[in-house]
Amino acid sequence: MHTEAIDPPGITWLRVSPKYVTVRLAGWALGTLFLVAVLCLPLVLVLNGVWQTFPLWLAVAIPVVMLLLALWRLLLIPRQVRAIGYAEREDDLLIRRGIFFQRTLVVPYGRMQYVDIGAGPVERGLGLCTLKLHTASAGTSAEIPGLPAAEGARLREQLSARGEARLAGL
Protein backbone atom coordinates (compact mmCIF):
# COMPACT_ATOMS: atom_id res chain seq x y z
CA MET A 1 0.00 0.00 0.00
CA HIS A 2 1.27 3.38 -0.93
CA THR A 3 2.00 5.48 2.10
CA GLU A 4 3.03 9.06 2.33
CA ALA A 5 4.05 10.75 5.50
CA ILE A 6 1.73 13.52 6.57
CA ASP A 7 4.34 15.48 8.45
CA PRO A 8 5.87 18.67 7.14
CA PRO A 9 8.90 17.97 4.93
CA GLY A 10 12.47 18.47 6.01
CA ILE A 11 12.27 17.13 9.54
CA THR A 12 14.71 14.62 10.94
CA TRP A 13 12.83 12.52 13.42
CA LEU A 14 14.39 11.13 16.55
CA ARG A 15 13.13 7.62 17.06
CA VAL A 16 12.34 5.94 20.36
CA SER A 17 14.38 3.07 21.71
CA PRO A 18 13.89 -0.26 19.88
CA LYS A 19 13.63 -1.84 23.30
CA TYR A 20 10.20 -0.26 23.57
CA VAL A 21 8.97 -3.13 21.36
CA THR A 22 9.44 -5.40 24.38
CA VAL A 23 7.23 -3.15 26.47
CA ARG A 24 4.52 -3.22 23.85
CA LEU A 25 4.89 -6.99 23.52
CA ALA A 26 4.44 -7.46 27.24
CA GLY A 27 1.30 -5.33 27.14
CA TRP A 28 0.06 -7.21 24.11
CA ALA A 29 0.66 -10.59 25.74
CA LEU A 30 -1.22 -9.66 28.87
CA GLY A 31 -4.13 -8.15 26.99
CA THR A 32 -4.43 -11.00 24.54
CA LEU A 33 -4.18 -13.62 27.27
CA PHE A 34 -6.98 -12.00 29.20
CA LEU A 35 -9.20 -11.47 26.16
CA VAL A 36 -8.78 -14.99 24.79
CA ALA A 37 -9.32 -16.48 28.23
CA VAL A 38 -12.62 -14.64 28.56
CA LEU A 39 -13.70 -15.55 25.05
CA CYS A 40 -12.89 -19.20 25.66
CA LEU A 41 -15.53 -19.30 28.36
CA PRO A 42 -18.37 -20.35 25.97
CA LEU A 43 -16.13 -23.09 24.58
CA VAL A 44 -15.44 -24.47 28.04
CA LEU A 45 -19.12 -24.36 28.91
CA VAL A 46 -20.10 -26.12 25.68
CA LEU A 47 -17.46 -28.80 26.09
CA ASN A 48 -18.59 -29.49 29.63
CA GLY A 49 -22.12 -29.79 28.44
CA VAL A 50 -23.38 -26.93 30.59
CA TRP A 51 -24.48 -24.80 27.65
CA GLN A 52 -26.06 -27.24 25.21
CA THR A 53 -27.77 -24.75 22.93
CA PHE A 54 -24.65 -22.85 21.92
CA PRO A 55 -23.20 -24.07 18.58
CA LEU A 56 -19.77 -25.59 18.96
CA TRP A 57 -18.34 -24.02 15.80
CA LEU A 58 -19.18 -20.53 17.03
CA ALA A 59 -17.65 -21.25 20.43
CA VAL A 60 -14.45 -22.23 18.65
CA ALA A 61 -14.58 -19.47 16.07
CA ILE A 62 -14.81 -16.54 18.50
CA PRO A 63 -11.51 -17.11 20.30
CA VAL A 64 -9.77 -18.17 17.08
CA VAL A 65 -10.78 -14.98 15.27
CA MET A 66 -9.71 -12.90 18.22
CA LEU A 67 -6.41 -14.72 18.34
CA LEU A 68 -5.82 -14.08 14.63
CA LEU A 69 -6.61 -10.39 15.06
CA ALA A 70 -4.26 -10.26 18.01
CA LEU A 71 -1.52 -11.95 15.97
CA TRP A 72 -1.97 -9.39 13.25
CA ARG A 73 -1.62 -6.62 15.81
CA LEU A 74 1.47 -8.39 17.09
CA LEU A 75 3.04 -8.19 13.63
CA LEU A 76 2.29 -4.47 13.52
CA ILE A 77 3.91 -3.65 16.84
CA PRO A 78 7.53 -3.33 15.64
CA ARG A 79 6.43 -1.09 12.77
CA GLN A 80 4.27 1.00 15.07
CA VAL A 81 7.17 1.49 17.43
CA ARG A 82 9.39 2.49 14.53
CA ALA A 83 6.74 4.99 13.46
CA ILE A 84 6.90 6.88 16.75
CA GLY A 85 9.13 9.89 16.43
CA TYR A 86 9.75 13.30 17.83
CA ALA A 87 11.61 16.35 16.70
CA GLU A 88 12.63 19.45 18.59
CA ARG A 89 12.29 22.55 16.50
CA GLU A 90 13.19 26.02 17.55
CA ASP A 91 9.77 26.92 18.92
CA ASP A 92 7.83 23.72 19.11
CA LEU A 93 8.04 20.01 19.62
CA LEU A 94 6.72 17.63 16.99
CA ILE A 95 5.50 14.17 17.85
CA ARG A 96 4.32 11.66 15.29
CA ARG A 97 2.94 8.17 15.55
CA GLY A 98 0.97 5.55 13.68
CA ILE A 99 1.09 3.76 10.35
CA PHE A 100 -2.52 3.32 9.37
CA PHE A 101 -3.84 6.09 11.54
CA GLN A 102 -1.14 8.68 11.45
CA ARG A 103 -0.95 11.67 13.69
CA THR A 104 1.54 14.50 13.79
CA LEU A 105 1.29 16.76 16.78
CA VAL A 106 2.82 20.21 17.21
CA VAL A 107 3.18 21.50 20.76
CA PRO A 108 4.63 25.00 21.11
CA TYR A 109 7.08 25.21 24.00
CA GLY A 110 5.32 28.30 25.31
CA ARG A 111 2.11 26.34 25.76
CA MET A 112 3.51 23.57 27.92
CA GLN A 113 2.24 23.73 31.45
CA TYR A 114 4.16 20.82 32.84
CA VAL A 115 6.10 17.79 31.77
CA ASP A 116 5.65 14.37 33.34
CA ILE A 117 7.97 11.42 33.27
CA GLY A 118 6.56 8.04 34.14
CA ALA A 119 7.72 4.45 33.86
CA GLY A 120 5.79 1.23 34.24
CA PRO A 121 7.39 -1.94 35.67
CA VAL A 122 8.47 -3.34 32.31
CA GLU A 123 9.76 0.01 31.13
CA ARG A 124 11.70 0.47 34.33
CA GLY A 125 13.27 -2.95 33.92
CA LEU A 126 14.49 -1.96 30.48
CA GLY A 127 15.63 1.48 31.57
CA LEU A 128 12.98 3.29 29.58
CA CYS A 129 10.49 6.00 30.47
CA THR A 130 7.45 7.77 29.04
CA LEU A 131 7.36 11.54 28.70
CA LYS A 132 4.01 13.35 28.82
CA LEU A 133 3.37 16.96 27.98
CA HIS A 134 0.41 18.90 29.29
CA THR A 135 -1.06 22.09 27.92
CA ALA A 136 -4.21 23.93 28.94
CA SER A 137 -6.12 21.75 26.51
CA ALA A 138 -7.19 18.25 27.41
CA GLY A 139 -7.04 17.41 23.71
CA THR A 140 -3.28 17.60 23.66
CA SER A 141 -2.47 14.00 24.43
CA ALA A 142 1.21 14.41 23.80
CA GLU A 143 3.17 11.40 24.90
CA ILE A 144 6.55 10.04 23.88
CA PRO A 145 6.87 6.47 25.13
CA GLY A 146 9.97 4.30 25.17
CA LEU A 147 12.61 6.94 25.76
CA PRO A 148 15.88 5.81 27.32
CA ALA A 149 15.94 7.21 30.85
CA ALA A 150 18.86 9.53 30.16
CA GLU A 151 17.27 10.87 26.99
CA GLY A 152 13.99 11.35 28.86
CA ALA A 153 15.70 13.37 31.57
CA ARG A 154 17.57 15.44 28.98
CA LEU A 155 14.37 16.09 27.05
CA ARG A 156 12.50 17.09 30.16
CA GLU A 157 15.18 19.57 31.17
CA GLN A 158 15.34 20.89 27.65
CA LEU A 159 11.58 21.28 27.39
CA SER A 160 11.30 22.94 30.78
CA ALA A 161 14.04 25.41 29.92
CA ARG A 162 12.53 26.25 26.56
CA GLY A 163 9.05 26.43 28.00
CA GLU A 164 10.29 28.82 30.65
CA ALA A 165 11.86 31.05 28.02
CA ARG A 166 8.78 31.17 25.82
CA LEU A 167 5.99 30.97 28.35
CA ALA A 168 2.84 32.58 27.09
CA GLY A 169 -0.52 33.35 28.63
CA LEU A 170 -3.55 31.19 28.01
Binding site: T3, Q102, R103, T104, L105, P108, R111, S137
Partner: peptide, 24 residues
Protein backbone atom coordinates in the same frame (compact mmCIF):
# COMPACT_ATOMS: atom_id res chain seq x y z
CA UNK B 1 -2.64 25.47 22.35
CA UNK B 2 -1.35 22.73 20.10
CA UNK B 3 -2.21 21.21 16.77
CA UNK B 4 -2.22 17.82 15.16
CA UNK B 5 -2.54 16.42 11.69
CA UNK B 6 -4.45 13.16 11.56
CA UNK B 7 -4.99 10.76 8.73
CA UNK B 8 -6.65 7.38 8.50
CA UNK B 9 -6.20 4.77 5.76
CA UNK B 10 -9.22 5.93 3.76
CA UNK B 11 -8.13 9.55 3.92
CA UNK B 12 -4.67 8.52 2.74
CA UNK B 13 -6.24 6.88 -0.27
CA UNK B 14 -7.65 10.26 -1.27
CA UNK B 15 -4.62 12.24 -0.11
CA UNK B 16 -6.53 14.31 2.41
CA UNK B 17 -5.77 15.00 6.03
CA UNK B 18 -7.57 16.35 9.12
CA UNK B 19 -6.17 19.19 11.16
CA UNK B 20 -7.19 19.37 14.82
CA UNK B 21 -6.63 22.47 16.91
CA UNK B 22 -6.58 21.91 20.64
CA UNK B 23 -8.22 24.51 22.85
CA UNK B 24 -9.48 24.51 26.41
Amino acid sequence: QSMALEQGPLARRFRVVDLVLHTT
